[in-house]
């Protein structure tokens, strides 16, 4: 069972920022700037939480909150 804050902590660790700076409303592209870094983050989360995303899943993901929701949704939590 994972919770929102665990996923946020993983994202924060990846972008090397405190979790408090990685709020749900923060745009992912403000956090990582380069699209290939975003690919790395997305794969990091899939590996860490044993989930799989498809491109259609990511098309609506814009913010940290969206990405956390996606992970939790895939985990069924």
């Amino acid at each position: 069972m994972i919770d929102r804050e665990q996923v946020r902590a993983e994202i924060a660790k990846f972008v090397k920022k405190p979790a408090a700076k990685v709020g749900d409303g923060v745009a992912l592209m403000d956090l990582v700037q380069e699209s290939f870094v975003l690919v790395e983050l997305v794969i990091e989360l899939q590996e860490s939480f044993s989930v799989r995303f498809g491109q259609e899943d990511l098309s609506a993901v814009r913010s940290v909150g969206d990405l956390i929701d996606l992970v939790l949704n895939r985990r069924g939590t």
Binding site: S35, F36, L38, V39, V42, I43, Q46, E47, R52, F53, G54, Q55, D57, L58, S59
Partner: peptide, 17 residues
């Protein structure tokens, strides 16, 4: 290869990479 993401969308998982 930096241009791929803007043309085809970014790879979403390991298989796509």
């Amino acid at each position: 290869q930096d241009q791929y993401a803007s043309t085809a969308g970014m790879p979403a998982n390991l298989m796509e990479v």
